[in-house]
């Protein structure tokens, strides 16, 4: 198990092209919302304004939103971000290392991680009607301690 993790780690470290991947350990103590997205995914477009609002409103309470982009071609992601600017962290994973590890089965998929670094829930897809329940979940985790 450890060996395979190391293998994965070294492979992705090579692929990461200067180290742009995710360091969840450094984010311990905060509530982390990890969102996997791609420029070609239609519901992803709808999630961006909501994620901006969440980061603006709840950032000071300890919420960190990290959007993992899985576009193979980096320029596609850049183009998307020019059209839909992000006010949260964006991580680029063109080789799909992180979605493989997280077991992402559709785009977008998000994971909500509590202040102790435990993944509390996984959410597949994004619809406008998902915004309120997701917001509620984030608030509950922010005020859990």
């Amino acid at each position: 198990m450890l060996l395979s993790l190391l293998l994965l780690a070294s492979r992705s470290a090579l692929a990461a092209n200067g180290g742009q991947l995710l360091d969840l350990a450094a984010l311990k103590g905060q509530v982390v919302y990890v969102d996997f997205w791609a420029s070609w995914c239609a519901p992803c477009r709808e999630s961006f304004p909501w994620m901006n609002r969440m980061q603006d409103e709840l950032g000071r309470d300890g919420l960190v939103i990290i959007a993992v982009n899985v576009d193979h071609d980096h320029s596609d992601a850049e183009h998307f971000l020019r059209e839909h600017p992000a006010r949260f962290r964006v991580v680029f994973d063109p080789d799909g290392v992180l979605p493989g590890q997280f077991g992402v089965r559709g785009m977008p998929t998000s994971f909500l991680i509590d202040r102790d670094g435990r993944v509390q829930s996984r959410h597949a897809g994004f619809r406008l009607t998902d915004r309120d329940p997701l917001t509620q979940q984030i608030r509950v985790l922010l005020h859990a301690h």
Binding site: F36, A38, S39, W40, C41, V70, D71, H72, D73, D76, G96, P99, G100, V104, R105, G106, M107, T109
Partner: peptide, 10 residues
């Protein structure tokens, strides 16, 4: 894989 659909999504 779900994250390998950029061509199919064109």
């Amino acid at each position: 894989k779900p994250w390998q659909r950029e061509i199919l999504a064109r």
